[in-house]
Amino acid sequence: MKSLEELKAIKDKMKSTIDLRHEDPSATKVIVSMGTCGIASGAREVLNAFAEVVAEKGITRNVMVSQSGCIGLCENEPVAEVITPGKDKVTYGKLTPEKAREIVEKHLIGGTVVDEYKI
C-alpha cells in the first residue's frame, strides 16, 4: 500500500510526462475560444470542424487544436487564434465550420492568412 505522498508523487510525474507528450514546440496551435459566449455562438461546431479537417488532411502531427476561455472578443464569437512559431498570431472571428475548413486549407496548409475572416 502506497502512502498518500507517494501516490501524489506518481500523479505529478505522470502529469509532466503527459504535458511533455503534447507540447510540440514546432506545432501550429489553433485555439478555439470556448467560454460560455463562444459555446453559445457555435464554437463547438467550429472546434470539431478544425479537428476533422486537420485529421482529413493528415496534419495532426503539425497542428494542435485546443480550447481557451473567453478572450474578451465576445461580439466576434466564435473566435479562434492561429499561433505558428516565429510568426505573428492571427485571430479569426465570426467563424463557421465552412470558414474553419477554408482556414485549414489556405492558412495552415497553404501558408496564406485568410484576411477576410481576420479580426
Partner: peptide, 15 residues
C-alpha cells in the same frame, strides 16, 4: 453527439 465529439477532440490534445 456533437458535444461528445468535441470532448473527444479536446481529450486527444490535452491527454
Amino acid at each position: 453527439a456533437e458535444t461528445v465529439m468535441c470532448l473527444i477532440n479536446l481529450s486527444r490534445q490535452s491527454g
